Amino acid sequence: MGVFVAIVILIFWLGHLLYSLFFVEPDLLSPFFYLHILIQAYLYTGLFITAHDSMHGTVAKSRRLNNFIGHLSTTLFAFLSYNVLRKKHYQHHRFPGTEKDPDFSPRSNNFFVWWFVFMKNYVTWWQILLMAIAFNVLLIWFSEIQLIAFWVIPAILATFQLFFFGTYLPHRRPHSRDMEPHKSRTQRKNHLWAMLSCYFFGYHHEHHESPTTPWWQLYKSK
């Protein structure tokens, strides 16, 4: 089932991206133009959530297939290193909300400062170089505004969505007793909002309690 869900996310991500590039007119006055940007951003978030499940080994029983889907998802997202992400994510689960947590900002609770620290931990010069090369290759078939609108901006929006609902809201200070031992809070039970906001990762304390529960089963633990 995990492989099926991952394939559906990948197909929807690629299908909507191609549909937007070929059939959606980049019209700054059209609400449908912005709607497709938001849809693609949401699918980018799903792409990363798929990679995240791979890091926990919950996509496929076959380790090789599981890691392949993880590598594919992080590469499609923005040429991210799956191995680096997996290593740091294990640290996040082992030392949540501490100085040893690569996703945590111990010096500032400010959203934008924390987001910058968060991104600095994961963005590399190799990644930027590969993105630049891919962008220029894609210019052979598509215009700059098409690529920026449907390929670049959705990925950036997805990082904000993932960070806000999956890191900042759950782990921001102050840490109360009910957040222990994971230093993580959880959003109120609302499955529709939890799915729309970040594929149920607002139920974050539950994720830390059971990290091997795939995202599409996480609502059952609430």
Rank of each mutant, 00 (worst) to 15 (best):
I145K: 14
L157T: 04
T212V: 13
M131Y: 03
Q187Y: 12
E144D: 06
A78K: 04
F23Q: 06
F79Q: 05
A51S: 14
G15Q: 07
I133T: 02
S176P: 00
A158P: 05
D103Q: 09
Q91M: 09
I37N: 06
G97S: 08
E209C: 11
F116S: 13
G70S: 08
N83V: 06
D101P: 11
A51N: 10
H204P: 00
L28G: 05
E209I: 09
Q40K: 12
H56F: 12
A51L: 12
H191D: 01
P154A: 10
H36Y: 14
T75H: 03
Y19G: 05
V5C: 07
L38E: 07
W114Y: 12
F12W: 12
W126I: 06
F142E: 03
F4L: 11
E144C: 06
F68L: 14
P106G: 08
S62T: 04
Y122I: 08
R185M: 08
T74K: 00
F23L: 12
Y219M: 07
T213R: 14
R86H: 08
F150P: 00
D178P: 02
L139V: 03
F79D: 02
D53K: 01
W141T: 04
E99V: 09
P106W: 13
I153N: 04
L157D: 05
Q146R: 15
L192C: 07
I145C: 01
L29D: 02
D178I: 13
H171L: 08
Y42N: 11
V117C: 10
M55W: 00
R64Q: 12
D103A: 11
L85N: 06
G70H: 06
I39Q: 07
R185H: 10
A194F: 11
L162K: 10
A6L: 01
T167V: 13
S73L: 02
I69K: 00
L10D: 11
G15H: 08
V8N: 09
K120V: 02
